[in-house]
């Protein structure tokens, strides 16, 4: 596994500590020795937390779940970048071999008015859930499962929809954006349904509702810097944002209800 297999690192960690949403947080510095380069970033945090617990101190709160890069729960802003220095990976898939012995690593939570800090590095991404609930679905009659080929979908449309659907809703786009905009997330969710025949019925209402919900949550405005696309662990494309701009403009011009 690359260079330095089995070697160990001594690191300085500057971690954001914040008691609760209302408290104002600050950085706490920790020295770590003997960190294996084979560890994931979260495993390094597990080691640090074990150490803190042994010392009778409070463990650092951070979000994680699957630890295999598909759930979208982990959310650390590492050395100035969401999910750390590697492209196309979540924090749980970031390994300590990406760091050098003696490095100082600054770890912060996602910083966004729409993602209030719950504690330390854990933020509340409920804003994303509320945006999805506002229109990120298709209404279908339940009943027997339909034949898979009942509705024909062109391969390129299916591929593009799948590309958009790869979004795991981690919020790195918001964290990366200098404006704290959620456009990449919302556009991925709008796109995956707008591209498929099943999504046509609610197409116009959906984009209007979801953009309204996004604006209500207090996210910033997109200035097309492309930072979101560059930092997205799932490679969601800026084309989705352009598509949402088209969808919203056309819906605003023609939707009558």
């Amino acid at each position: 596994m690359g260079s330095g297999h089995g070697t160990e690192l001594n690191l300085t960690l500057k971690v954001w500590r914040q008691k609760n949403t209302k408290a104002s947080g600050s950085f706490e510095t920790h020295q770590l020795t003997g960190i294996s380069t084979d560890m994931s970033f979260l495993e390094m945090f597990d080691v640090l937390n074990e150490k803190l617990i042994h010392e009778g101190k409070e463990a650092i709160a951070f979000d994680h779940d699957c630890r295999e890069g598909i759930c979208g729960m982990c959310s650390m802003y590492i050395n100035g970048r969401p999910h750390g220095p590697k492209n196309g990976v979540t924090t749980c898939q970031l390994h300590m071999r990406s760091f050098k012995n003696g490095d100082t690593i600054v770890v912060e939570p996602w910083r966004s008015a729409a993602f209030p800090v719950i504690k330390d590095l854990a933020v509340d991404r409920g804003a994303f859930d509320r945006i999805i609930a506002s229109g990120g679905y298709v209404s279908v009659n339940t009943g027997n499962a339909r034949d898979a080929n009942n509705i024909l979908i062109p391969k390129d449309a299916a591929d593009e929809a799948f590309g958009a659907a790869a979004c795991i809703g981690c919020g790195a786009c918001v964290a990366a954006c200098k404006n704290g905009s959620a456009m990449l997330f919302v556009s991925a969710k709008v796109s995956q349904l707008a591209l498929l025949p099943q999504g046509q019925v609610e197409r116009k209402a959906r984009v209007l509702k979801m953009v309204a919900a996004m604006d209500e949550e207090g996210f910033g405005n997109c200035t097309n810097t492309g930072a979101c696309e560059a930092e997205c662990p799932k490679g969601i494309s800026l084309e989705n944002i352009a598509r949402m701009n088209r969808e919203l403009t056309s819906a605003a011009l023609t939707y009558t209800k």
Binding site: G80, N179, N221
Partner: peptide
């Protein structure tokens, strides 16, 4: 002004060059 409000607490360290011009 709205964008400033969207991030009330600034990051201590930002590596902007890594993702945008």
């Amino acid at each position: 002004l709205a964008n400033k409000k969207a991030r009330p607490v600034a990051y201590a360290k930002i590596d902007g060059a890594a993702n945008s011009s």
